[in-house]
Design a protein around this nucleic acid. Structure first.
Lengths: 152, 152
DNA sequence: ACTATTTAGTCAGTTAATCTGACTATATTC
DNA sequence: GAATATAGTCAGATTAACTGACTAAATAGT
């Protein structure tokens, strides 16, 4: 809200939003170009939050800040398209563990590759030094956010 | 996708996403706390893109990268709640101009204030210097994005 | 000048994304 | 072992966004 506009200086919200949106758009387009046409932006959260050893649905829901019912649906869809595998959790028979399938790993790598390319392009334009400063700043803020969240 | 995780270094996508999400969450909570309970995140785009002199619906739709039908609905809702005023465009009788009402300006200012506070808090944590470097870097990237978009 | 085309916006209907509430089955606590 | 909490699903509702068809006004072409 009220974050933008060429005329007066942009607020931090818009400063973060515009590059983030741009990168999301590029990931979408890049995945489509590579033939992954059955994944929509909503499904990205599954890939964003799943751990390499696999995650529970409840855990994914929590990390993505949505209800477990909604996450359950997303996982179902993504699993049905072959990007996920699911197995019962041996320690807790109520739960199941979802992890990326080989196809899932492949999209994930494709997405990483796209992001890497975008970073490189931007880095070429603004300079490696400024890009590094930017990343350091973002990491510092993320650490602050994580502290806030942990002792909320 | 594949942007996160404590274990290995985060990708640029996650570096941008996490602070952006955090700020959106804070804006939501802050507006709710100030009594603006009828605005949902979807409506924020209207405020983000409207120009001080007012904007057309088609223009807002374009800037928000959505269809004019969808934007039309959002504008309707936000207008019905009293945040917007609408008047016919004297230059083009097909179009109308929407602009913020006094109530609309008030939420906008509230949102700006919330963002300013978040920036200040973060700045206190990471240091004014690093915050400035971060903002400079984001602005530089936004300039790159704007050039890309203009000669796409 | 008038016909054809484009543009601004709405109406109607659909799909996608997310929510709430109720439920089953398994775990945990006391 | 009974009471309570947790993981996940099912069903239904709401919200967000889309496509297609349309009206009215503006612009372009001849």
């Amino acid at each position: 809200m009220a974050e933008n506009h060429h005329e007066y200086p942009r607020m931090l919200g818009a400063l973060l939003r515009i590059p983030f949106q741009a990168i999301v758009t590029k990931i979408e387009a890049g995945l489509r170009a590579r033939g992954y046409t059955d994944l929509r932006p909503a499904h990205f959260v599954v890939f964003q939050h799943i751990r390499p050893e696999g995650s529970r649905i409840t855990e994914l829901a929590e990390r993505a800040q949505m209800t477990k019912q909604s996450m359950s649906e997303l996982v179902h869809y993504v699993e049905a398209k072959g990007y996920l595998e699911r197995e019962p959790d041996p320690r807790d028979h109520r739960a199941s563990i979802v992890r990326l399938s080989m196809k899932g790993e492949a999209v994930n790598n494709a997405a990483r590759e796209i992001i890497r390319q975008v970073e490189e392009e931007w880095s070429n334009q603004i300079g490696r030094e400024q890009m590094n400063a930017l990343k350091q700043g973002l990491m510092a803020i993320i650490r602050v956010i994580e502290v806030e969240n942990s002792n909320q």
